Simulated assay, not measured.
Amino acid sequence: MTYKRKGQNLMRVRGYKEKGNIDTPLELAIRNETDRYSLAILAIDSLKSVLGNKGSSTREYLLNTRTAAMNYAYETGQDPDNYVNWTWDY
């Protein structure tokens, strides 16, 4: 659908990466880089020319939060409550 179209180089595609384990939904999303943290990090990385160094602290926070969520899921076999029970306040 994007072949030889304007902006094709800006397109990102994510697919399923099978590992063979029983994982939580968040673990699968992180492995496939489709979770909210990975997508936000990708957006920050894609806008480095616009943002400069302004997104670095947010990027680091997202990396740390994603790592903590992975560790929690690995240790407990469940996704963190702040991920499962998250609601949009607006």
Rank of each mutant, 00 (worst) to 15 (best):
G55N: 07
T34W: 04
Y37H: 06
D81F: 10
L51Q: 08
E18R: 15
E18Q: 13
Y74E: 11
I44W: 06
L39Y: 06
T58C: 11
L47D: 11
Y74R: 14
D79W: 02
L42F: 10
L47V: 09
T24K: 03
D81Q: 14
S46D: 10
E27I: 06
D23M: 15
Y61C: 02
S38R: 12
N64F: 03
N71S: 14
G52N: 03
E27A: 15
D35M: 05
A43N: 11
I30L: 10
E27R: 13
A68F: 04
S46C: 08
N21L: 15
D23T: 15
N71M: 13
S56I: 11
A29L: 04
T58E: 10
T65W: 00
E60G: 10
Y61N: 00
L63F: 09
N53T: 05
L63S: 08
E27G: 09
G77H: 08
I44T: 04
S56K: 15
A73T: 03
R66K: 14
G55M: 03
R31A: 12
D81Y: 11
D23S: 14
P80E: 13
N82C: 12
G52R: 10
G52L: 07
K48Y: 10
K48L: 10
N21T: 08
D45K: 13
M70H: 03
L42K: 05
R36I: 09
G55Y: 02
G55V: 04
V50C: 02
L62D: 09
Y61D: 01
N71C: 03
E33Q: 14
R36S: 05
N21D: 11
P80Q: 02
M70K: 09
Y61P: 00
I30F: 07
S49A: 12
R59I: 04
E60P: 04
P80S: 09
I41V: 13
L26I: 06
E27M: 12
S49M: 10
D45I: 06
Q78Y: 13
E60V: 13
L62A: 05
E33L: 11
A73P: 04
L51K: 01
I41H: 04
E18T: 05
R59W: 01
G52S: 01
K17G: 10
A73M: 06
K54F: 07
E33S: 14
S57M: 02
S56L: 08
A40N: 01
N71W: 07
G55W: 00
T24H: 08
D81W: 11
A73W: 01
V50E: 13
N53E: 14
L62C: 09
S38T: 06
L51R: 06
V50T: 12
A73R: 04
N64Y: 06
D23G: 05
N32G: 04
R36A: 02
E60Q: 15
E75V: 05
G20P: 13
G77K: 12
K19N: 08
G77Q: 09
K17S: 14
E33Y: 12
V50I: 15
K48D: 10
A40G: 01
N82D: 10
V50P: 02
T24E: 07
D35G: 01
L51S: 08
P80N: 10
G55L: 03
E75R: 14
Q78V: 08
I41Y: 03
A68C: 01
I30E: 04
S57C: 02
V50W: 11
S57N: 11
Y74P: 00
I44G: 00
E75C: 01
Y74L: 06
